[in-house]
Write a protein that binds this DNA or RNA. Sequence first.
RNA 1: GGGCGCAUAGCUCAGAGGUAGAGCACUACGUUGACAUCGUAGUGGUCGUAGGUUCGAUCCCUGCUGCGCCCACCA
Length: 879
Amino acid sequence: MLDKNFNPESFEKSFSFEIEASLRKPNAEPFMVLLPPPNVTGSLHMGHALCYTLQDIIARYKRLMGYDVVFQPGLDHAGIVTQLLVEKSLYEGGAEKGSLTRETLLKEIWFFKENSGNTILNQIKTLGISCDFSRLRFTMDEDSRKAVTKMFVKLFENGLLHRRKKMINWDPLIGSAISDLEIVEKEVDSYLWYIKYRLADSSESITVATTRPETLFGDVAVAVNPSDQRYLHLVGREVMVPLVNRKVPIIADSHADPEKGSGAVKVTPAHDFNDYDIGVRHKLPILEIMNLRGELNENVPELFQKMDRFVARRKVVELLEKKELLEKVETIKQKIPFGDRSNVPIEPMITYQWFVDAEKLAVSAVKAVENGKIKFIPKHWENLYFEWLNNVRPWCVSRQIWWGHRIPAWYGPDGQIFVAESLEEATVKAGQFYGKNVVELVQDEDVLDTWFSSGMWPFVTLGWPRQTSDLGRFYSKMIIVTGFDIIFFWIARMIMMGLFCMDEVPFCEVYIHGLIRDEKGQKMSKSKGNVINPLDLCKKYGVDSVRWTLASTTSPGRDIKMNEHSVENGRNFLTKLWNVVRFAKMNGCLYNHDFKVEDVSYPMAKWIVYKIKQMVSQVGSAMAEYRFDEVTHHLYHCLWDSFCDWYMEFIKPIFQQSSLKNDEKRGYDLPHTLLKKDIRDTTSWAIVQFVRVLYPIAPFISKKLSGEMGVMEISWPIIGEIDAAEAIEEVEFLKSAISSVRSMKQYLHIPPTEKVSVRLESDSYDVADLIVKYGEAMHRMVGINFGKITEQTVPVVLNRAVIYMELGSKIDMGKERVRLSQDMKKLLQNKENMLFRLANEDFLNNAPEETIWDHQKRVEEIEDKIQKIDYVLRSLEVV
RNA sequence: GGGCGCAUAGCUCAGAGGUAGAGCACUACGUUGACAUCGUAGUGGUCGUAGGUUCGAUCCCUGCUGCGCCCACCA
């Protein structure tokens, strides 16, 4: 027997889903869910919990629907993050800065990976995520290394990958190039300094406004707008760069904006993207004044050499002021780019890097979404995808760090590049190139952007470059579930690389979920201290409750405001189900495998079968559309409202009849022995359907309760056809009768426990039959006895029936009349509205037939009620 | 500057061209055998704003306002 208390912890640990996750169905339709591989350094946060839960729901549902499902787990080596983290812990452990060699650091990181990489995997298992862990992959495992290397060579040989000297975003803290995507703009308080540049050949000067005075050492020109009348006469003349007194020209370039600053701008091609472009346009020299650590180099006066860029800034300003070259200073709000991992301002630097021609790869990637081969859910995210890909710039894939896939390029003594899958191959190529056998080759020091390997994940996890059977079977039959923030980083790159490499889209659906926020709608962050740990929630409320809550609060295109309250809600629902099963077992219900819904005859049973059939189909449609909120909604209301509140209450007398004494039976005897078995079977059947449909969302309790009902295998319900129209009518009538009587009792302040005698009158129903079938239940549910009425009565007007309640002297006839008159007024108003519409010719001509028919039916119903109330009102007048 | 999303009950959010919904909260009443992690009955909304299309708009279209986000630029 089940515990009285619902305690998820007591059974959650006893279920493992590894076997069913690894089960293959070679003859079924293939379907794959590709888990976005979490970072090895990661630990589970709410975002993971949501993302993974949704995928798990999909994977489990697809399994139930008979698909051959691969739910592929993995871990991402997360180059920069991991290296920073391990370095930090080593330094904190006493290692001297700069003392680490490539080999020792890599050894340490691998050690860290072996020991900590499992943390998040175990957390994923705790959440009940049914990945096939026997397929676990790591983005830096040997197979991945081979694949990445091959891809690099392939891109290179197709002319889509080049090594170029270009200006890139340099992160001085990490000491590496980073891509455009790894930058975050931050608004900071800053200054705009107005600096006087003296003309070389006169005492005149031109004022230049800048936010970066320290870069003036690298100035090679001053630019003004060609249409700026103030400065036109100066174009072509020369100015002295302050502090170094180097002559540079004044040039006309449209980049200079007369509205901004002083209208004149210093040009530093080596350290600013726009200035670099100006430099190219005007064939200006490039003067680099900074090293890769963000310190000024030997091209600046000695005083400033090796000085940090921000220290140098203060010093420069100080000196300019002293020399009276500083005209004025404005305080401004400025947005400047920061490295997203290092959180330091990035520095544009001209360096050699490897670039993928993303512009070329983007063409087919855009097409694949345009022509519907890949669908985003919700669809509007496609706009974002298009916007980015249509303006995509070369992707800088080289990183000057050590943790990652080493770039498979080797350099000859003269700098000649040999891109190959191995040193041996490179050596052969070099031999051919130089015409001799022994050539000393040096491998590129850099590693690849982490997203390079992630971008290949859909086919690498399927075995590529080996032509495995999985690769042919599951590639492009996938769904990806993820947050919008990695549409560029990951989704777009998977599509580009997949199309390039496999000539086919990697997946067909991309489900983009919302962000989890705190209850005030703020982003969760450690610094704000508003982080909710999903595992804490699981511990407190049970994993299933958390999963249920995540599913029920997610809706397309909307972020989730998370609070514990909503988890309580989920827990309460599961508790309800738990108690349903307790009730069933107390009454001897066990799943009967021979039971057929077609054989059900008792109307209440037919009704619940119908309700469940309807629910299953609604849940199925919702699942197909990934509307997890609707899935839970339908389940919730079918179980709680239909099954618990009505079905269970109605069948109690049948289960409990035997315990009643004769004088308590009030003559509502039914052929109980027969009925009891039918009802037991129906009840068990119903519970099993609930538990099955619940399985994708709350697998632990589903398994547990399914077992309790005697069903070991969970499968999706298949429900036969039944003709339930009459039963539905009857039950809906009973429901409205009971609700109305309850309402009336409350209205008249009759205590719920007080029994009331009633008389049911109807020309549409067989009153005696209803009383035999449901009298006992109605007695229990509302405290009414069917019998003779002698005293004053109050009528409860129903559809096609009236119930008269005996109330003795408690009724205030005057009050009753007022109440009924008010009801009447509303009904008349309602009827009038309907009739007005029905009298409108335009309405009749244009509205769909169904709508018109609906209106007419409604009028009939209203008229019936009006008639009854009218009748009752008149009878009250007689009294 | 370009783009996207959102605006419905006190709160969190569904929703559909034809009688406005749920959960929570709130009010009143109620624990004898499934469940107080509960039950019953209620209160509560001119669906942001101004126009347009339509027989009919809260839903479709346009403008506006407010909030959130993305991209680009910023000397």
